[in-house]
């Protein structure tokens, strides 16, 4: 059905880069999300306000704009900061680093809201009960809070990861050699834009279908033993 004219390995390289970008952004994004949720639930108003500004900014600005800002603006900010600290050689920001920064900040903003509402669904008296029987805060978090938060947060996190996976394509705009850019290169040689962009679309479709299947399995596992909450 598809004659890739020897560009198959190029597209494979691009796909691997896309997967790498998405997974690294997921890891950092989860950390940002947990920090953001902790700040939003904090006793200190200043932390709550800062986290509120972070999520409002990211959710109100196009992701492409965030990527452009981080890539072109980030270099300047970083060098100014380095110069101010007395370090005077030029620092370059790679497209991969800028992509990870932009995508993980985006994921983190959505994950902040997901974690925050998931944490609030755990009844407070469970935490009080854990404290009362002498559990340490760390153990309470690990044994009581985390398994329940994980269960409530999974659907939202899965959907947000699907969004991030599709948004990796935007990082091609700043020149990262991921699937879109490799496809562009193949199109330049073969002059068959429809064939190659459709093939790229099918690769993305395969990846999203795979993530959805994994998400379903994880949800079923997280919900085991919970009556009336069996995912279809």
């Amino acid at each position: 059905m598809f004659d890739l004219e020897g560009f198959g390995h190029l597209l494979l390289q691009g796909t691997l880069m896309t997967i790498q970008l998405a997974l690294v952004s997921l890891a950092f994004g989860l950390v940002f999300g947990l920090i953001g949720a902790a700040m939003k639930l904090s006793r200190f108003a200043i932390l709550r306000v800062l986290a509120g500004i972070y999520t409002a900014l990211i959710r109100g600005i196009p992701e492409l704009m965030v990527i452009l800002f981080v890539y072109y603006g980030g270099v300047i900010l970083l060098n100014n900061l380095a110069g101010w600290l007395g370090y005077d050689s030029y620092i370059d920001v790679s497209a991969f680093a800028a992509g990870v920064a932009a995508l993980s900040l985006t994921f983190g903003a959505y994950a902040t809201e997901i974690f925050r509402s998931a944490i609030r669904t755990v009844p407070r008296n469970q935490i009080e009960a854990a404290r009362a029987i002498g559990m340490s805060p760390g153990t309470t978090f690990r044994r009581i809070l985390l398994p329940q938060v994980w269960r409530f947060a999974l659907p939202g996190l899965g959907n947000t990861f699907l969004i991030i996976l599709k948004e990796t394509a935007l990082v091609s705009v700043i020149g990262l050699d991921e699937l879109m850019r490799k496809t562009d290169i193949a199109v330049g040689y073969t002059k068959e834009p429809f064939t190659f962009f459709l093939f790229a679309a099918l690769i993305y479709l395969g990846m999203t279908a795979f993530v959805m299947a994994v998400q379903q399995r994880l949800e079923r596992r997280a919900n085991r033993g919970v009556a009336g909450r069996v995912t279809p």
Binding site: K166, E167, T168, A169, L170, S172, M180, V187, K191, E192, P193, F194, T195, F197, L198, A200, A201, Y204, L205, T208, A209
Partner: peptide, 17 residues
């Protein structure tokens, strides 16, 4: 299931094939 960027390119560049 696919990025919007691919959809735009598929229509703008792709159809000229």
């Amino acid at each position: 299931g696919t990025p919007l960027l691919v959809q735009i390119f598929l229509i703008y560049y792709g159809l000229s094939q």
